[in-house]
Amino acid sequence: MSFEEKTLKSERIYEGKIVNLRVDTVELPQKKYSKREIIEHAGAVGILAVTKDQKIVLVKQFRKPVEETILEIPAGKLEAKENPADCALRELGEETGYKTSKVKKLLEFYSSPGFTNEVLHIYLAEDLEEGIAHPDEGEFVEPVHIGIEEALEKITKGEIKDAKTIIAILAYKNILNML
């Protein structure tokens, strides 16, 4: 059985700086019809940065959609046709001041494929050199350094709630377990 939905009509509802919203009319496999609200997003990167003393670099940042200050890995939106590894290095420098020439792609995933096409690329950054953070205008972040075990504990206690951060930390822990 094919699960594919054939798009019959697509209507752009909103165009924004970060996301666009469209509504697609689709034909379902059993020849019924439905509407799909889809948020288009250019994609993003997250960087799990590890210092020489094996601390993970997170940033503390207020996130308006959830009305909370949360801990997350440095991250940012891909610019048009930007290479994800270049974006990772740019965001690492902007949000933490750290620089490196050593980044390795860990994985990529869909953030929430039920309503958005956003792909997140997660990188590991090691051999960090300290520098001065230069966040974007209107971006307020504070770097925080924690060990892997403390990070895992914060996930378990619900103190780290950001999905990309949880995924990145668990992927890194898995790598450490394989060594």
Rank of each mutant, 00 (worst) to 15 (best):
G43M: 00
K164C: 00
S2R: 10
I39L: 09
L152I: 07
L48F: 02
T156M: 09
F109Q: 06
Y123M: 06
E149L: 09
A125L: 03
R90K: 14
L152S: 12
T7E: 12
E91R: 00
K157E: 14
T25C: 05
D162G: 02
L106N: 11
A80N: 13
L152D: 13
S34A: 15
S111I: 06
L179I: 06
V57Y: 00
N83E: 06
Y110G: 14
H134T: 01
K105E: 15
A163P: 03
Q61L: 06
E79G: 07
I13N: 05
S10Q: 12
L128I: 04
A125V: 01
D53G: 05
A44R: 08
I38D: 02
A75Y: 05
M178V: 10
I146K: 04
I39A: 07
L120H: 12
A85N: 03
E68Y: 14
Y33R: 14
E79W: 15
N177S: 12
E82M: 08
Y98H: 01
D24H: 03
Q54R: 10
E11Q: 09
A85D: 08
L106T: 06
I169P: 02
E4Q: 13
V50Y: 03
R12W: 10
G114V: 05
L179M: 11
A75P: 00
K164D: 00
A75W: 05
K6E: 15
L8H: 12
K154D: 10
S10N: 08
Y33F: 15
K55I: 04
P65S: 14
V26S: 06
K173E: 11
E129M: 01
E95K: 07
L124S: 10
Q30M: 14
T116I: 10
V144N: 10
Y33S: 06
E11W: 03
